[in-house]
Simulated assay, not measured.
Amino acid sequence: MAEPVEPITLPPAKDADQEGRWLQASLHQWLDQEFIPEAVNHEIAERASRVFVRHRLEGENDVGSLVIAIVTEMQCFDFSQSFFGEFAVANAVSELLLDSLGIDRCCGQ
């Protein structure tokens, strides 16, 4: 039987707004580099960052819960002008957060 995946938690937020600015800039850069720069990428990064900051201010530290919140709340975003969708955005946020924690995400490790 497979072992359950251990939760990954962020340290408690000391400055959620600063984290949000970092996430917005990092996600925007990731979106622009993944395909082509699009004007809507700024809006996507801004919206995802707002969701992230709100949940961090509410005390959420679990990366999985933060990713689920982004998927859920980005479902109402109009992605028709983008190559991305809510799952791609949430997965990118997860990768950025894991990278910021120094966690190697390669090969299921």
Rank of each mutant, 00 (worst) to 15 (best):
I70V: 07
W22G: 00
D78A: 03
A16W: 04
A25N: 14
S82R: 11
H28A: 10
I68S: 11
A45M: 02
M74R: 03
L101K: 01
L101F: 07
M1E: 14
E19N: 11
G85C: 10
V63C: 09
I68A: 13
E38Q: 11
G20Q: 01
E34S: 07
Q75V: 06
A13W: 06
I44K: 05
D17P: 09
H55G: 04
L27W: 11
G108Y: 10
G85E: 12
A45P: 01
C106D: 15
S49P: 09
K14P: 04
S82M: 06
C106M: 11
V67K: 12
D32P: 13
R54Y: 03
W30I: 05
A90Q: 08
G20N: 00
A39V: 05
G102W: 15
W22Y: 02
V5R: 06
V63I: 14
D32M: 07
F77N: 08
S80C: 12
D15R: 01
S65M: 14
M74S: 01
I68E: 15
L98Q: 04
D17Y: 08
K14R: 09
V51W: 01
Q29N: 11
R47K: 13
S100F: 10
F79C: 11
E60L: 14
E46I: 14
L57S: 00
S26G: 01
S94V: 05
